[in-house]
């Protein structure tokens, strides 16, 4: 045998795997039937009961909506941050500073309690009440439309905002790194063709930056799936982990419930990883391994002054 150490390693791993499978199969404390088949008489396995499935839906919905906020706002903030306008870039800086500094858990609780600040939230004239007073109109508040703050900012929306706004700060940094990784020559060529700044960004810079942006964004989405469990503190009950905890509290069954949660999170994560694979492949168009290597070689040559025919420039 050429690699004895490798074979010993493989043997050890095989034994450990066998022990793990043996544990899963023979230890009846896992109570697989409780998880998959039937957790009380006449009821489906705990993974598939109505409240848990609802919780799962909530988790997915919350992940999608808060990531949508995070990515959309993140792109805007990244662009602001890279803007030549000092005010825009400072606002973006302060935003990222704040939302990266505050723990998500604290944000979730904070957003759950924001309705203490305002009774109603709506659209209208800014400082409407004060303007009304100025003109001696007592009842005037300048609001066109408003709803009770506790209706809007409770539960799901508060959780979504807390996670989404926090995510935007992280996404902004990811997008900024992506944009900055693109060679200046790209936007220069685009501008020279007469493209507007918006077109350059949308058609040339961002599609290329996506190659750099997608992998860490995959990380963020997967982390978000798990961070949705934080909204239990808003409180939001429409969420997977909370619902499973409820089952646990009702039935005094602990381990299988944890395992059921684990399985759901594994499934969600797997789906996302498959999706990420395809997205990466899409944005990797034009970047085969060989093409990339050739490009790099060429770049190095150009850096070194190129292989100029006939002449060397300067000394």
């Amino acid at each position: 045998m050429r690699h004895p150490a490798r074979w010993v390693g493989l043997g050890v791993i095989a034994i450990l795997v066998a022990m793990f499978v043996h544990l899963l199969v023979t230890n009846d404390r896992f109570r697989w039937s409780f998880i998959f088949l039937e957790y009380q008489d006449g009821k489906r396995g705990v993974m598939f009961t109505e409240p848990v499935l609802n919780g799962l839906r909530g988790t997915i919905l919350l992940t999608i909506s808060s990531m949508a906020i995070g990515i959309g706002l993140g792109i805007v903030i990244a662009i602001m941050r890279l803007s030549e306008n000092r005010i825009l870039s400072s606002v973006a800086f302060v935003y990222t500073w704040f939302f990266r500094a505050v723990p998500r858990l604290v944000l979730a609780v904070l957003f759950g309690n924001l309705n203490i600040l305002w009774e109603r939230i709506g659209f209208g004239l800014p400082f409407g009440t004060q303007i009304g007073k100025l003109f001696g109109l007592d009842g005037f508040d300048g609001q066109f439309y408003s709803i009770k703050a506790s209706d809007l900012l409770a539960g799901f929306v508060a959780g979504m905002l807390a996670l989404g706004l926090s995510e935007a700060a992280y996404m902004a940094e990811i997008v900024r790194a992506g944009i900055q990784s693109i060679d200046e020559g790209q936007s220069e060529a685009a501008v020279a063709l007469g493209m507007s700044r918006g077109q350059v960004l949308r058609r040339v810079v961002l599609p290329q930056a996506m190659r750099v942006i997608v992998p860490p964004t995959g990380n963020e989405i997967i982390a978000m799936v798990k961070d949705t469990s934080l909204v239990a503190f808003v409180p939001v009950t429409f969420e997977l982990w909370f619902q499973l905890q409820q089952v646990s509290a009702r039935t005094f069954v602990v381990l299988p419930v944890i395992v059921a949660a684990l399985i759901w999170y594994l499934i969600l994560c797997t789906v996302l990883m498959v999706a990420q694979f395809f997205v990466e492949r899409h944005f990797g168009k034009g970047y085969g391994a060989a093409a990339k290597a050739r490009q790099r070689l060429r770049d190095i040559q150009v850096e070194q002054g190129g292989r100029i025919t006939g002449v060397g420039e300067g000394p």
């Binding site: 020559g185 501008v191 944005f283 168009k285």
Partner: peptide, 16 residues
């Protein structure tokens, strides 16, 4: 700029 074409030392084609 639309009516002025420019060609660069490093090509600057859009790789995607």
């Amino acid at each position: 700029r639309r009516s002025i074409g420019m060609v660069f030392q490093r090509f600057n084609l859009f790789p995607h």
